[in-house]
Amino acid sequence: MPFPKAVRLVEVGPRDGLQNEPEPIDTATKLELIERLGAAGIRHIEAASFVSSRWVPQMADHCEVMTGLTRHPGATYSALTPNLKGLEAGLECGVEEVAVFGAASEAFSQKNINCSIAESLQRFEPVLERAKAVNVRVRGYVSCVLGCPYEGEIAPAKVAEVSKALYEMGCFEVSLGDTIGTGTPFKAKRLIEAVSRDIPMDKLAAHFHDTYGQALANLYAVLEEGIAVIDSSVAGLGGCPYAKGASGNVASEDVVYMLDGLGIETGIDLNKLADTGTWITQAIGRPNRSKVGVALAAK
């Protein structure tokens, strides 16, 4: 199958990238990060998470972020809302798109959201109903699609089952997350083949972590299958608190460099994006995990 002509990048740095940072990051820094990402041409930014500040203290200023950001024409600023309480809080703060997250692993679902996969899907039903009533789109995430820290291998059929449930519930798009980054290109292809039997390819996204250095290879493999939406995080920020040693998301700069090299349109200015990665890692005292970002900064 030919590569897609264009790819939509979903930038998850402000949410997934920052949520586990141990030191508080002030709201102004988060807002500047979102503004810089928008100025680099990114049109889909996951900006906040409406979860309990007891569990994720870094996201306690979610409302200030959502109400304080400058909305660029044609850009979408989404937030994570795992339950009805989170959605209602998000709606009060003007969210226009939200996301719910399930898992393809029973053990991970229990550790992450304290319930079974079936229970998690039941919890999402009222969220989808309420969002639909107020014309807010809902994206679905599936964690552990290429491996689980507790169960090991995950069958593609199990991922397909959870993905199909989210899609049929009303999620406009399902993002497949290799949470611990253990996937390899052949497994990634098999995964997409299984899931795309039930869900149209243009309703799927790839959210691959780079723990084992496989994320770009895996993305190349699923681009060949027809995937045209990729989640990534500027400077490779982020990790997973439930997956020890998981280094986090694939770096947006590295993804854009690869897509540019393949002649695939993104609408993103790589230099501005790399400058943003350099800026945010210096601002929060973190290493820049983007190889492209580090190389450009050294020039």
Rank of each mutant, 00 (worst) to 15 (best):
residue 133 A to H: 03
residue 140 G to P: 02
residue 92 E to H: 10
residue 111 K to C: 01
residue 150 Y to H: 13
residue 105 S to R: 09
residue 107 A to Q: 09
residue 123 R to H: 07
residue 98 V to N: 07
residue 107 A to T: 07
residue 180 I to F: 11
residue 147 G to L: 15
residue 101 F to L: 14
residue 152 G to W: 15
residue 140 G to V: 02
residue 155 A to N: 13
residue 145 V to C: 11
residue 155 A to Y: 10
residue 134 V to K: 06
residue 144 C to L: 07
residue 153 E to W: 13
residue 92 E to G: 03
residue 148 C to R: 12
residue 175 S to K: 04
residue 143 S to G: 13
residue 194 A to G: 06
residue 107 A to V: 05
residue 104 A to S: 15
residue 150 Y to N: 03
residue 191 L to F: 12
residue 116 S to C: 04
residue 160 A to R: 08
residue 194 A to W: 09
residue 164 K to S: 05
residue 97 E to H: 07
residue 119 E to S: 00
residue 181 G to F: 09
residue 160 A to Y: 08
residue 148 C to P: 06
residue 152 G to T: 09
residue 190 R to H: 07
residue 142 V to Y: 10
residue 106 E to A: 12
residue 140 G to A: 06
residue 128 L to A: 14
residue 92 E to P: 00
residue 173 E to S: 04
residue 105 S to W: 15
residue 108 F to V: 03
residue 189 K to F: 07
residue 183 G to Q: 07
residue 156 P to I: 09
residue 98 V to C: 06
residue 190 R to F: 02
residue 151 E to N: 13
residue 92 E to D: 14
residue 167 Y to F: 14
residue 116 S to R: 04
residue 164 K to L: 13
residue 126 P to Y: 12
residue 98 V to P: 03
residue 110 Q to P: 02
residue 186 F to T: 08
residue 124 F to I: 12
residue 110 Q to H: 12
residue 140 G to E: 10
residue 110 Q to M: 12
residue 160 A to M: 12
residue 164 K to P: 04
residue 156 P to T: 10
residue 167 Y to M: 05
residue 177 G to V: 12
residue 153 E to Q: 15
residue 187 K to D: 08
residue 108 F to G: 00
residue 130 R to G: 05
residue 168 E to Y: 11
residue 92 E to C: 01
residue 193 E to D: 15
residue 102 G to S: 15
residue 157 A to P: 05
residue 160 A to K: 03
residue 120 S to E: 00
residue 152 G to L: 13
residue 112 N to H: 06
residue 171 C to R: 01
residue 128 L to P: 01
residue 111 K to M: 08
residue 136 V to D: 10
residue 182 T to K: 10
residue 124 F to Y: 14
residue 165 A to Q: 04
residue 107 A to I: 06
residue 113 I to C: 01
residue 130 R to A: 04
residue 165 A to T: 02
residue 120 S to F: 00
residue 164 K to M: 08
residue 144 C to P: 05
residue 184 T to R: 11
residue 167 Y to E: 11
residue 148 C to V: 01
residue 98 V to H: 02
residue 183 G to Y: 15
residue 138 V to R: 06
residue 187 K to T: 10
residue 122 Q to V: 03
residue 101 F to A: 14
residue 174 V to E: 06
residue 139 R to K: 13
residue 146 L to G: 07
residue 126 P to F: 14
residue 137 R to E: 14
residue 157 A to V: 15
residue 150 Y to I: 04
residue 165 A to W: 00
residue 99 A to D: 05
residue 135 N to W: 09
residue 148 C to K: 08
residue 154 I to W: 11
residue 171 C to S: 05
residue 179 T to E: 07
